[in-house]
């Protein structure tokens, strides 16, 4: 494992031009499209403004409330 890490980071970034190995590792870290599909919902983050919007649109509010912001962390 250590050998993989040294190999990946020892290559340097070449001014942001990632090596093929680095690109592959970065691709593994970044979320896949299916992991971010839930962001298409159009979540509001301001409850007070959402109240105004809901009152105007005559719609109920759906609040997803978590310890740690639902749109951050995991």
């Amino acid at each position: 494992m250590k050998a993989i890490l040294i190999s990946l980071l020892g290559a340097g970034s070449l001014l942001g031009q990632w090596s093929a190995e680095q690109k592959a590792a970065i691709a593994e870290i970044l979320p896949k499209a299916e992991e971010t599909a839930w962001l298409q919902i159009g979540w509001r983050t301001d409850l007070w403004e959402a109240r105004r919007e809901a009152a105007k649109a005559k719609k109920p509010i759906y609040l997803w409330e978590m310890d740690g912001h639902p749109l951050g962390c995991v």
């Binding site: 509010i61 759906y62 409330e65 639902p70």
Partner: peptide
């Protein structure tokens, strides 16, 4: 659950969806 198109449609059309951090809100 929120990745399912059926749920996204329901939330988008019938609700105003909000996400918040309870640590602050409470």
């Amino acid at each position: 659950m929120f990745s399912k198109p059926k749920v996204q449609k329901l939330l988008g059309e019938e609700f105003i969806p909000v996400a918040a951090n309870d640590w602050y809100q409470r």
